[in-house]
Design a protein around this nucleic acid. Structure first.
Length: 426
DNA sequence: TCTGGGGTCCTAGGACCC
DNA sequence: TCTGGGGTCCTAGGACCC
């Protein structure tokens, strides 16, 4: 064997406080200040700068609960701006792809890269180079964790987040038990709230203890996913790299309302809008839906008004992505589940059983379908060019009293040339 | 007053058939 | 009429992820 070691090596590159970093990119004045970004409707805190974390503001905490700390410490607050984050995410991913085309975009702010082709002793250097390049080209700071399996890369990344260098590699370490011992069981990828409770009850408090637990016990008392996690902790890959983006199986559009809604008419407007959104989305991916679910509910937190939640699913006679048909079906479902006298807080539609739109005509297709398809296509093109909902259906309404609250939007639009930041060339 | 949204996968249990 | 078990398929709900 040659002296160059080539084992399986996966890097997890994760953007630091991604949404906050995006806002900071366009607003240098908040670089060193505590910053948080809120979820839709300004409901919860979903991204925090290190300064904000240090103040004790928790992930997912409702905004109103953290308001005291926020005001007292002059924390900068932003409503979320997903088109900005999506755009910057694509730039980061494009940059990463230069290092290896064997890459899995795992979420908006993280990606797995296969570094197996590099010699073992070089990976830390490569990781450093990745960080520097992404920072220089996009302005987004990242952390890099490298290990033999996805689960271990996650752990390496978790450690890297706390280091100034921003990089941790577990490659070439004989015994990683002392490292795993310091990782709380709930910080292991795939171990959520319920599993944490279960493991702790059985004396498992850290990653090392789970790693050394027998597989049969884990499989028997939990499930295959948990045993996969344990195997991955042992350095045995069980979760593959998904380099091609699989077609999705469902498409959900749902929102909480800016204000509570009581009237059927307003609820209907919201549902129609969600349908238009969802059908446009699946059309853009050349998919058709076999079924649709509509759900409505009142706030689970509001006491004294009575809680009501209901949903219903209906199969389409033929899988479709036609807005008009989808809207019509959704409204009839809403008609069935709507009850008077409740203050609705949220509604949503879910298109399920998605499959490829082969465009084939079937027994029931007619010339009318052809006309409808052309209509959908021109609606999508127009909306793409002139902004969403330039063309819509009358039932979608114009007032939209139910629209989301977004009080703290930075209103940055990356399509606006003049607001683009200047990035240093190399 | 104010508590996000969008996904995937697994399992248990019921319906149905032989 | 009563009795039994095993297989498959579907769905709802739960758990997890970011």
């Amino acid at each position: 064997m040659s002296s160059i070691q080539r084992t399986r090596k996966l890097a997890l590159v994760d953007c630091n406080s991604f949404y906050v970093s995006c806002e900071r990119l366009f607003n240098p004045k908040i670089r060193r200040k505590p910053v948080v970004v809120l979820s839709n409707n300004d409901g919860c805190i979903i991204s925090r700068s290190n300064e904000a974390k240090a103040l004790g503001i928790k992930m997912g905490e409702p905004y109103f609960k953290a308001k005291d700390i926020i005001i007292k410490n002059k924390v900068e607050v932003f409503s979320s701006n997903y088109s900005l984050y999506g755009d910057l995410s694509r730039r980061v991913m494009r940059t990463l792809k230069r290092f290896n085309s064997e890459m899995e975009v795992y979420s908006i702010d993280e990606a797995f890269l296969d570094l197996s082709n590099f010699p073992d002793q070089d990976v830390e250097k490569i990781g450093k180079e990745i960080r520097e390049t992404v920072l220089q080209w996009t302005g987004i700071p990242t952390s890099v964790g490298i290990a033999k399996t996805k689960t271990l890369s996650k752990i390496a990344n978790h450690i890297a987040k706390k280091k100034i260098s921003g990089i941790t590699s577990l490659i070439g370490i004989e015994n990683i038990d002392p490292i795993l011992e310091k990782i709380n069981i709930n910080d292991v990828w795939g171990v959520g709230k319920q599993l944490t409770k279960f493991y702790q009850k059985n004396g498992i408090y850290n990653a090392k203890q789970l790693k050394n637990k027998s597989n049969t016990w884990i499989k028997k008392s939990s499930n295959v996913l948990s045993s996969r996690t344990a195997m991955e902790l042992r350095g045995i890959p069980c979760i593959g790299l998904e380099t091609t983006t699989a077609k999705r199986k469902s498409c959900v559009v749902s929102r909480s309302f800016g204000k509570r809604i009581e009237k059927f008419q307003e609820l209907k407007e919201a549902v129609v809008n969600y349908c238009l959104n969802a059908s446009e989305k699946i059309r853009s991916e050349s998919l058709v839906a076999k079924a649709i679910t509509v759900f409505i509910r009142t706030s689970p937190f509001q006491r004294g008004f009575g809680y009501y939640s209901n949903s219903n699913a209906v199969d389409f006679p033929i899988a479709t992505n036609n807005s008009i048909e989808i809207v019509k079906t959704a409204v009839s479902i809403l008609d069935n589940i709507f009850k008077n006298g409740y203050q609705y807080q949220k509604a949503g539609v879910m298109l399920t059983g998605l499959c490829n739109d082969d465009g084939k005509k079937n027994l029931f297709s007619s010339e009318k379908d052809e006309i409808i398809n052309n209509l959908m296509r021109s609606i999508d093109n127009t909306n793409y060019r002139y902004g969403r909902s330039t063309l819509s259906l009358a039932s979608a309404g114009v007032q939209k009293k139910w629209n989301m609250k977004r009080e703290y939007s930075s209103k940055i639009d990356t399509a606006d040339f003049y607001s683009l930041p200047k990035i240093k060339a190399i």
